[in-house]
C-alpha cells in the first residue's frame, strides 16, 4: 500500500477540521449521529473517487486562486479599460478602450525611461550579486569550520535584514548631512577618487547616484543567498575531484572553470534566473531610495506602474497596463526558471 495517508475507511484529515481529535478512539466529541454519518458518507465518497489529494489541496488552491491568480487576470482586464477615479466612485461607467492604454504607454518617454532603468539595473546588479556571492561561497568552503560559521552568520544577518530596514540604513549611511560614506570619501586621497567635493554629496537626488546606492544595497542583501546556495552545491562535489585536479597541476582559476563550474552549472542557472526576476522587479528598496514617489526620472518599471495607478488622479487602467507589461516580462523569465528547476528534477 503506497497511499499511506488515505488508509482504511474513516475520516480523512480534511481541511474543515485539521485539529479534530476524531481519529483518536475515546476522544470522539458528542457529535449528533446524523452529522457524523453524513461525514462518514462524504469520507467514503472521497475515498472511493480518490479525491483525498484534491480535498487536501482545496484550501491552498482557493487562497492562491483568489488572491494571486484572479488579481493577475483582473490586471489584464483593467489594462484594456478606462479605469480611473470616476469609475471607482461610480460616477461614470467602466468602458473598454481597446489598446488605448498601451498605445499611450508606447508613446510615453517616461515608460521607456523606466524600462531602461529596470533593464540596466538588472544587467548591472545580477552579475555583481552572482560574482560576490560565488566568491564568498568559495571562500566559505575553504575556511575552517568555526571561521566559516562566523562569516556565514554575518552574511545571514545581511540576508535577514528586512528590505525596509536595509533601505533606511543605506540612506542614512549616504546622507549628505552626517552620513559616514560622504565623510569617508571626503577624507580619502584624490588618487582614490576621494576629495573635499564629496562632503554633502546627495546620493538620492539624481538617477545615477541613487541607483549606485541601490546597487550596493541590493548586492549587500542578495549575495548571501547566492553564497549559501553555492556553498551547498560545493559540498556535494566529492573532495577527490578537486584534489585530483590539483595533483594534475591545475591552479584555482582553472579548477573552478574546469571542475567546479560545470558541476554547479544547474545551480548557477537557477540563481541567475532568480536574480534577474528579483532585481528587475525590485520595488521596496527602489521606492524608498528614490524618495517615495515624486522623482519621476528615477522610476523603474514597477514604481512607474504603481505611481500611475495610485498617484492622484489615479489611473488604474494605465497602471494595470504597465503592471501587465512588467508581469509578462517576469513571466517569460519565470518560464526559463521553471524549466531549469523541472530539468533538475525539482517536481519529482
Amino acid at each position: 500500500m503506497v497511499r499511506t495517508v488515505s488508509g482504511p475507511p474513516g475520516r480523512i484529515p480534511g481541511p474543515e477540521d485539521p485539529a479534530s481529535p476524531a481519529g483518536r478512539p475515546g476522544h470522539r466529541g458528542p457529535a449528533p449521529r446524523d452529522v457524523s454519518s453524513a461525514q462518514q458518507r462524504a469520507a467514503v465518497f472521497i475515498r472511493r473517487h480518490h479525491l483525498t489529494p484534491y480535498v487536501l489541496l482545496l484550501p491552498s488552491a482557493v487562497a492562491i486562486g483568489l488572491l494571486l491568480f484572479w488579481p493577475t487576470v483582473q490586471i489584464a482586464e483593467f489594462s484594456f479599460q478606462n479605469y480611473g477615479l470616476p469609475q471607482v466612485a461610480g460616477q461614470a461607467p467602466t468602458q473598454w478602450v481597446g489598446g488605448a492604454n498601451f498605445s499611450a504607454i508606447l508613446s510615453d518617454p517616461e515608460f521607456w525611461l523606466s524600462l531602461r532603468i529596470s533593464l540596466i539595473f538588472a544587467a548591472v546588479v545580477v552579475p555583481l550579486t552572482l560574482l560576490t556571492g560565488t566568491l564568498v561561497g568559495l571562500l566559505l568552503n575553504r575556511l575552517g569550520p568555526k571561521m566559516s560559521a562566523f562569516v556565514s552568520s554575518t552574511a545571514m544577518l545581511a540576508w535577514a535584514t528586512p528590505a525596509v530596514s536595509a533601505s533606511v540604513i543605506f540612506i542614512w549611511l549616504t546622507d549628505p548631512d552626517g552620513g559616514v560614506v560622504d565623510w569617508t570619501l571626503s577624507k580619502m586621497p584624490s588618487w582614490l577618487g576621494g576629495g573635499a567635493h564629496w562632503a554633502g554629496f546627495s546620493w538620492t537626488n539624481a538617477p545615477l547616484p541613487a541607483y549606485t546606492l541601490l546597487t550596493a544595497l541590493v548586492v549587500w542583501q542578495g549575495f548571501p543567498f547566492v553564497a549559501v546556495a553555492v556553498l551547498a552545491g560545493l559540498k556535494t562535489i566529492p573532495a577527490e575531484l578537486h584534489e585530483a585536479a590539483r595533483v594534475d597541476g591545475g591552479g584555482s582559476w582553472r579548477i573552478f572553470w574546469r571542475v567546479t563550474y560545470p558541476l554547479l552549472k544547474p545551480i548557477f542557472l537557477v540563481l541567475l534566473l532568480l536574480s534577474i526576476i528579483w532585481d528587475f522587479g525590485v520595488f521596496t528598496q527602489a521606492y524608498l531610495v528614490t524618495g517615495e514617489l515624486g522623482n519621476r526620472d528615477e522610476y523603474n518599471l514597477g514604481i512607474y506602474a504603481y505611481d500611475r495607478a495610485f498617484t492622484m488622479p489615479p489611473s488604474y487602467g494605465v497602471g494595470s497596463a504597465l503592471a501587465l507589461i512588467l508581469t509578462v516580462i517576469l513571466l517569460i523569465i519565470t518560464i526559463g526558471y521553471v524549466r531549469a528547476s523541472v530539468r533538475q528534477g525539482a517536481t519529482r
Partner: peptide
Amino acid sequence: LIVQMLPQQAMVIALFLD
C-alpha cells in the same frame, strides 16, 4: 513556482480595488 514570481507591485493594483 510560477505564481510566486508574479510581481506584487502589479497585483496590488487589482487587490486594492477588490
